[in-house]
């Protein structure tokens, strides 16, 4: 190791290869279950991401981060996403989610979640369809807000017989990929654990009621539906663990996962949105700077403390707001802060 800099033994490219390998089972399972349309969507998302990356910053294509982003974008897409939508999603993830912020490691929001959220607002028809296609059969998503939709069985959820986004095609494969990342220490195991346990706990304690059960009565009180439905697992293992968009401290990351879990469940249960995971991740990303401030900056007292600053100044204007009650005596001089003020 040279100089004062900490270096990781892992290169960026090595990390990206690990993530792609971890995402591969889920992507492969989606192709096996859904066939050519899923393959076209995945390839389009990756191609869109790589194309924009190559256009804007061609040198960084080699690190493989655009491929990772495209792959994760694909996992969040609806199962029947057309290739053009997937390509736009991949392109947006890089074009809006990464490049404007300065590239890899500087983005405050997870690019894949950002891409899905922006598309959900800009092209809602593709995300708010009342029923998603699955194995040529039209069925309601497990987290559909359709009143009267029936709950799928636990087996169907785990194996992937329930409809939803591409990442739901084989939840077991997402879990396997996630556990691989944990084993390789690529991600912090506490984040998915905190997120998933909080989701389960909230699902158990969330009381029923008109507002909740009006959307999907069978959603209440069943943690399995929430854990294996929607983008929960993808968010737990692939979105929330992005080091650029998560807080730096361990405590901060756990709080970050809890915020995401609360937001996920709030969106699912109290709003008409089909799945809250991506939006919840973005909300947690937005809170990350605050969590860093609370958990790191205050503890280490980074920055200039007001007391220290006061100590440096040898005089103060003595009247201030009490100018009219002072006797008019003014300071005769003194030194001031040496910082440039431009005045």
């Amino acid at each position: 190791m040279k100089g004062p800099f900490l270096r990781s033994p892992q290169s960026t490219r090595g990390l990206m290869v690990q993530v792609v390998v971890a995402a591969s089972p889920a992507l492969f399972a989606a192709v096996v279950r859904l066939g050519a349309p899923a393959a076209a969507a995945i390839l389009s998302a990756v191609a869109g991401a790589v194309a924009v990356e190559a256009t804007l910053k061609h040198r960084s294509v080699a690190d493989g981060s655009a491929v990772v982003t495209g792959a994760i974008v694909a996992l969040l897409l609806p199962a029947d996403a057309p290739p053009w939508l997937a390509a736009i999603a991949g392109a947006l993830a890089i074009g809006l989610g990464k490049a404007p912020w300065g590239g890899l490691g500087k983005n405050p929001f997870n690019p894949a979640a950002l891409s899905r959220a922006v598309l959900m607002v800009a092209l809602p028809a593709h995300f708010f369809a009342p029923a998603w296609r699955w194995d040529a059969v039209t069925a309601a998503s497990p987290l559909s807000k359709e009143i009267g939709a029936t709950a799928p069985s636990w087996t169907a959820l785990v194996v992937g017989d329930a409809p939803g986004c591409l990442g739901q095609a084989a939840p077991w494969a997402v879990v396997a990929g996630g556990l691989l990342l944990v084993a390789l220490r690529t991600i912090d195991w506490r984040v998915p654990l905190a997120y998933l346990s909080a989701i389960a706990a909230i699902a158990l304690v969330l009381p029923g009621g008109a507002r909740v059960t009006g959307h999907a009565p069978w959603l209440v009180g069943d943690p399995m539906l929430h854990l294996f439905g929607g983008g929960t697992l993808v968010a737990a293992f692939f979105l929330l663990t992005d080091p650029a968009t998560a807080p730096m401290s361990q405590g901060g990351r756990i709080a970050f996962a809890w915020i995401a879990a609360i937001a996920t469940m709030a969106i699912r249960n109290f709003t008409p949105y089909p799945d809250g995971a991506a939006l919840a991740v973005l909300l947690a990303n937005a809170c990350a700077p605050w969590l860093d401030r609370v958990t790191i900056e205050r503890r280490t007292q980074l920055g200039t403390s007001s007391r220290a600053r006061r100590g440096r100044r040898e005089w103060r204007v003595p009247w201030g707001r009490q100018r009219e009650v002072s006797d008019g005596a003014r300071p005769s001089g003194g030194t001031r802060s040496s910082r440039p003020t431009g005045s």
């Binding site: 809006l96 404007p100 912020w101 405050p108 929001f109 950002l114 959220a117 922006v118 959900m120 607002v121 709030a266 969106i267 109290f270 709003t271 008409p272 949105y273 809250g276 939006l279 973005l282 909300l283 937005a286």
Partner: peptide, 21 residues
């Protein structure tokens, strides 16, 4: 401004469910 506008765009999309509460 461009970065701020992008942040606002993301916040708009992120907090949209609040509009339905």
């Amino acid at each position: 401004a461009p970065a701020r506008l992008l942040v606002l765009a993301v916040l708009y999309a992120t907090l949209l469910p609040v509009g339905h509460l």
